[in-house]
Amino acid sequence: MCNSATTNYACADHYLTYFRLPYRPLQPGRPASHPQLETNKGYSELTSWTGSQTRPLLLADVGPSSKRAGVAVLWVAAISEWLNLVFKWMLFGERPFWWIGESRLFVNKQPKVHQFSSTCETGPGSPSGHAMVTAAVWWVVVSSLGSFLYSRTHSVVLSAAPYLFYVLMLVAVGISRIFILAHFPHQVVAGSITGLILGIVLSRRVPEGRPLLFFFNFSIGLLLSALMLHAGLQQLGIDLSWSITLAKKWCSHSEWIRLDTAPFSSLTRDCGALLGLGLAQYWKPGGFSLPWAPRALSLAISSMGLYHVNRLPLPIQPQGLFYGLFFVKFVIVPQIVMVLVPGLVHLFTRKKKKD
């Protein structure tokens, strides 16, 4: 298995020839383009987006049909992403887009590679967060859907269809992460297996109906424990910003280095989402019971709302302000999906009682 400590040229060549990439010198900050890779940009960007940005949309998707499943989606997403951050701090995984240059295995003949806007993530690479969180979150969705289909049809074949989709989704996300040079294959496999285990375990312990204080304490606990771990590793002389330095050095476009891919961004996102989940259950403990048509309308409106929330520009300086607003942003997400939009749809579509 190849990893960051590998110094075997054959191992590196195995990854690169897997995609049959031609060779040419590569300099830091200078991308090498390839026409055939351009044709696959849409696929790589789509599957990367599927692995990272649809977690709130999944909450909107399954929340109206099963309140417990909706709560489980956000719960599993937040916990699995927090654990992914901890694993990355501990495992020091390289990313291919900077490892190719830093390894010094290609001094005379460096590979011709192509970067995308989603390539230049600044956190360590192992395990893959996209694969890990996707595996965990989608397990909640497909297991819930599979059980629903079996209860209605008693067909093993039909109820197995969501699990086939689950496997295909993980393969697609994993290939896209390897293709854009964000991860090595072993990082994707490790993330997928870990995510599957977390999905199975965490989906059995869903904090549905818990008081707001539980989510507040849990959110603050995750935040403080991560900060303490970060401080402890720094006291041991470990520079946790090493990956940010390498990402800035080897990313082909400086504008592709985004603060929302930094480790502390995922931390504030997770803590904000958990607090938001508690607030949403506090405002409307039982949720809204909607028929299928209003439910579909709620999904569509929630998706559009989250799209625009995700596009809201945040000031990157000072960084404390950015992280604070990023936290608030993800506190708002569950309110939109679980309270605001379903409440408005329920208000305008409910049938008035006859006198």
Rank of each mutant, 00 (worst) to 15 (best):
H154A: 14
H154R: 15
V156T: 13
L158F: 12
A160M: 10
P162E: 00
P162L: 02
Y163L: 07
L164V: 15
L170Q: 10
V171F: 13
V173P: 01
G174I: 02
G174V: 01
I175M: 09
I178F: 01
L181Y: 06
L181G: 04
F184Q: 01
P185I: 09
H186M: 11
Q187D: 12
V189T: 11
T194E: 13
L196T: 15
I197S: 10
L198N: 06
G199R: 05
S203W: 00
R204W: 05
R205S: 11
R205W: 13
R205K: 11
V206I: 15
E208M: 12
E208H: 08
R210N: 02
R210H: 10
R210C: 01
R210M: 11
P211D: 02
L212I: 10
L213R: 11
L213E: 10
F215S: 04
F215H: 09
N217T: 12
N217C: 15
S219N: 01
I220T: 11
G221E: 00
L222N: 08
L222D: 03
L222P: 07
L223Y: 14
L227D: 09
L227I: 09
A231S: 13
G232C: 06
Q234M: 14
L236N: 11
D239L: 02
D239V: 04
W242D: 09
S243Y: 05
S243K: 00
I244R: 12
L246D: 02
A247N: 06
H253L: 02
H253R: 12
S254D: 12
I257P: 11
R258Q: 15
